[in-house]
Every structure is written in structure tokens, then in C-alpha cells.
Amino acid sequence: MNDRPAKSEVALFVTCLADAIRPSTAFAAARLIEACGFRVHVPDAQTCCGQPAFNSGDTATARALAERFVEAFEPYAYVVAPSGSCMGMLKTHLPHLFADDPAWLERHAALAERCYELSSFLADVADFTPEGRYAGRVTYHHGCSALRELGVRTQPERLITALSGLSYMPLAHPEACCGFGGTFCVKYADISTAIADEKVDDILATGAKTLIGGDLGCLFNIQGRLHRRGADMEVLHLAELLAGSTDTRPAEASGS
């Protein structure tokens, strides 16, 4: 196909949470992608993946955002997001919204095969092996969308354990949800908290000092509960861990 964009052009889907709350994650993601020899683009027309609308039943809004996404990201060779949840939406759920429209379905299908969650892009497409160092015990929380919608299972751990100086302590229940669930966590806050508590217990039981994750939604939920419970733990997005170790400038872990 000669209208395909050059293989080196990667569009970054920033995600709402990285954009507004934790830009470090998106900067780290961009640096990692560039470190792999790709050129990073940040399309201006991007907003939200549409999950809040889609998961609330407002398919009209979700559909409008779906079309916007396809239009804005079609020109690039790859689309990468530092979130399994947003990427799960963009890659696997958009066809539901285009179900009655073969033309959009086709356009989306062509784009979807070039869409990646960050860790799978780094590990599977870019064949990236981090060379840095991170001293300490870390554990990893798998976001449910990455795990089950995208089948991203082994990539994060492969990347983490490639760093030197680090000891990796896996969770006892890696398949368990953290209780975030988008709007669920505020609509049913007490159930969400009870689920988060089990996740927090699981994390603390590993003895790790740093929690890594691939989804800011989950991470904010877990970090919020950890902090409220008075637990002292550093919480990093995988991109920050990896970029902090490959780059001279360490990622900013928290605001202030």
C-alpha cells in the first residue's frame, strides 16, 4: 500500500489523565518511543477515547468521538497510548459504535491493527530493551483492559525485569481488578473502595516499595487508597520507570 505513512511516524494518544494530571507519563512515553528510533507526533485534534460516554450508554457522544479519533490518527503508521484502558476502547470497542456503517468499520479496522498500548508497542513492535537501572523492589498492577481486551500479559514484566538493580515482586492475584472501573469508582464508591483495599493488601504483601502500572486510572485509584491508608509507596507509570532509567532527566513522580 503506497498511501501508508512512513513506518517511523508514531502518533501519541495522550489520554485525559496524563494530559491534565500527570504530563510526566506522556513525556516519558514520547521519549521512550523516540529512543526506539520513531518520530512522535501529538495530533492536536485528539480529546478523549470516549469511554465515559460509551460505558454510560451514551453511544451518540462515543460515536462522535470515535469518528474524530479515526480521522485524526489515520495518517500515522502507529498509534500508541500509555493506557490499556483507552487503547482497549480505541482498538476493540469502536467497531460496536460503527456496527451499522461498513465504511467507518473498514477505516477503523485498517487503523486498529496499528494501534498499541505502550508496553506492547515497546516490546513487540520496537523490540525495545531498557538498559537502565532502578534500585529497589517493585511490583506491577495489570490493568484489566490491557490484560483481557488487548492480551497484554507478559510485556510489562519483560520490560521491568530488564532493568538492572531491581527486584521484581509479582502480585499474588495479578488478574484481580483494582476497583476503578471509570464512573463505577464514584457511583459505587464504597464497593470500589472495598475492592481497592484487597488490591492494596495484595500490593503491600509483596513488600515492594514501588508500584508500577500501565494505566493512570488504576494507578490513581490505588495510589489514592494507599495514601489514605497511610502507606508509604512510590507509584509510577511504567513509562516513567523506563524513561527515568534511560534518560538523564528523572521523571517527576509527584506534583508540587
Binding site: 494530559d19 491534565a20 500527570r22 504530563p23 490513581f220 489514592g224 489514605r228 517527576e252 506534583g255
Partner: peptide
Amino acid sequence: AWTKSRDFPTPEPGGTF
């Protein structure tokens, strides 16, 4: 609802990404 049982991270300084 969020902060009934959880804290929320403060946005990083310097503006949005």
C-alpha cells in the same frame, strides 16, 4: 465520592501536557 475514601493526586506543575 472519590475522596470519601481515597486521596487524589494533585496535577503536576507547569500546565497540561
